[in-house]
Design a protein around this nucleic acid. Structure first.
Lengths: 241, 241
DNA sequence: CAGTGGTCTAGACCACGTT
DNA sequence: ACGTGGTCTAGACCACTGT
């Protein structure tokens, strides 16, 4: 898309090494030392380290002080440090994900929602309501709220062509930095039961997410109701002390 | 505990700056530039950058290319990139958390569990079962399974004095690197309902966690059953592209 | 002891945002 | 034009792991 921005040298190295490792190397095999790589490519050790740090953070390799750098098990995914998206998960299961827009409106929110999105009283909010299905089985209802002031020209048409997050980034220059999520189990209400085609009072998983930009301003609040009998929420992350 | 290992200079700087920021600075206030800090402390810019990177990763500050470095909103917690622990959450709510060991045994696992922990057939596994309460209200049942070969000398006595994770690290030199979790909603079974003092068939949240060490060997599998009416699972993480 | 990753220095240029 | 963070170099010493 925007390839006019020059890519740093270490990023190119990351891609190169990632491809090389996946093609030619086995789990726990030792790779060249930082100094060796630097010398062979005639670049500085700092650049090699940055690339290796990135690969370690993404779960492709691991370093052991005094011993060397080794290839991680293939099972560790690229989506580390990232809650798996619904679409990715369904595709992994071989199911065909789809989403249907049920509602798009701009309105003035009540106190609770207004404070979640840090909008002052009287400011407007955009509501998006989706039904997500997999192989035409209804899986979850997703309600997203956006501060109108940050996305004033958002249209249904744009949403049909690109994902919300890519629109946020490219059209409105808002990219997500921190995400806060909560999960709880409850019993489904009758309205939602109809949409998801389950019995009243079935168990359901409620996931609520608030996303913040780099300035820590909330730019999205989403509440999902997922069928308890169908939906599992997965995440994988690197543990820090 | 083990203060014989020398702490890097940038780590000390992280602590200093963290304290200073929390004491004296306001949200979105600009802090000194990297070059200024380096000059004033007579250290190199690299060291300052490492410290600032750490503070950004932990959510205390954010950088903007071409503008400077700024203080984040206080709301962003120290536990970024980390699922909040039960204990922390309860303390934030002003509740008194407690855990009671219900079971401790070593046994030979069935196929499914054995494969989760990557133990070969015939190898043993340690089971720990806890009931967690908050202000004496039962909140969740936690069953943890550990490969016996990695923790052969683990005792109930040790667990009463330190947390499992600190024992893993200090006694057995196993620290957690990658964590994989899944969440699902279901209806509680009668045995669990009795322990949690809720009605049969109440909604409950089931959280399953597998933890891996740096070599990507599984070192723990835990399954939690939490009361749907009481327990909310929170996590917060930094979003990556 | 040699080799590895981890930290650190002093300096340079680039890309970005503001003045 | 200037100051900022982002990248990069060339070199140094330290801490850890093996022989």
């Amino acid at each position: 898309m925007n390839e006019n921005t020059t890519e740093p040298k270490y990023q190119k190295l990351v891609k190169q090494m990632k491809a090389y490792i996946q093609e030619n190397m086995k789990t726990n095999q030792k790779i060249l030392s930082e100094r060796e790589i630097a010398q062979r490519l005639s670049i500085s050790r700092y650049t090699v380290r940055k690339a290796l740090d990135e690969l370690e953070k993404k779960g492709y390799i691991y370093k052991v002080h005094g011993k060397g750098t080794f290839v991680s098990e293939k099972s560790v995914p690229t989506a580390l440090n990232e809650i798996y998206s619904f679409t990715e998960q369904m595709e992994q299961l071989g199911k065909k994900p789809r989403m249907e827009l049920l509602e798009f409106k701009v309105f003035t929110p009540h106190q609770e929602l207004a404070s979640k999105l840090h909008v002052v009283t009287g400011d407007k909010v955009i509501k998006l309501k989706y039904l997500r299905t997999a192989d035409d089985v209804p899986m979850m209802i997703e309600e997203t709220y956006l501060p109108y002031s940050k996305f004033p020209t958002l249209t249904v048409d744009a949403l049909s062509k690109n994902s919300l997050y890519s629109i946020m980034k490219t059209e409105f220059n808002q990219s997500i930095h921190v995400v806060s999520e909560s999960m709880r189990a409850s019993l489904i209400s009758s309205n939602e039961a109809k949409l998801l085609k389950v019995e009243d009072g079935s168990p359901c998983l409620n996931v609520r997410r608030t996303s913040f930009n780099k300035l820590n301003e909330p730019i999205e609040f989403t509440s999902c109701i997922a069928r308890g009998d169908q939906f599992v929420y997965n995440c994988k992350y690197i543990h820090q002390d």
